[in-house]
């Protein structure tokens, strides 16, 4: 079994939003919507400042409230722990949107709920997700946590990292390297 995850190096990321466009074109995400996005946090007061830049998306949690609350089981765990939405089973009730602490889902203009898939179609072909493959700063690492020799396993052993809103208890699988 595999457990897919993503590590994003906040030290490398420059917040260019290339990941957002690459996802849009790869996955035909309509203009005006996005499956991933950029957050810039600035701390301190001039001139003592620090900043953290993050590319954010669905955290593909182990304990996903969106899967739990979905009345039709459209939201489900697919291989490698990836959380997906089966569009033709989705009734667009938005329970998952309300339950997601990360605001990672949106209503597609065709009526179903859409979100990051970790580009499972690419992963199956042995490729990185589109956002990872495009990033000019090489700030993202995608891989299998069950493989102790994968780059992501190694980087999570050697670097400090955090997850977002860990207190929500969802066991997110996008890690931010600090």
């Amino acid at each position: 079994m595999a457990r897919y995850a993503m590590a994003i190096d906040t030290k490398r990321c420059v917040g260019c939003a290339d990941c957002v466009v690459a996802c849009q074109t790869e996955n035909n995400v309509p203009i005006g919507y996005c499956r991933d996005w950029i957050v810039q946090d600035t701390y301190g007061e001039y001139p003592n400042l620090s900043m953290e830049i993050r590319s954010e998306r669905c955290n593909h949690c182990d304990d996903s409230p969106c899967v739990r609350c979905c009345p039709t089981s459209a939201s489900h765990y697919a291989e490698g722990g990836i959380v997906l939405v089966t569009h033709d089973e989705c009734i667009g009730c938005k329970a998952c949107i309300t339950s997601c602490p990360y605001d990672a889902r949106y209503v597609h203009p065709e009526g179903y709920i859409d979100k990051c898939t970790f580009c499972i179609h690419r992963v199956k072909e042995g490729e990185d997700p589109a956002c990872v493959a495009v990033c000019p700063t090489h700030c993202m690492i995608f891989g299998d946590l069950d493989d102790k020799n994968s780059e992501i396993s190694k980087v999570l052993r050697s670097r400090k990292y955090k997850t977002l809103i860990p207190e929500a208890g969802t066991k997110p699988h996008v890690f931010y390297l600090l």
Partner: peptide
């Protein structure tokens, strides 16, 4: 198991 993602 077919989500939109598989069909790209």
């Amino acid at each position: 198991t077919a989500s939109s993602a598989d069909l790209i």
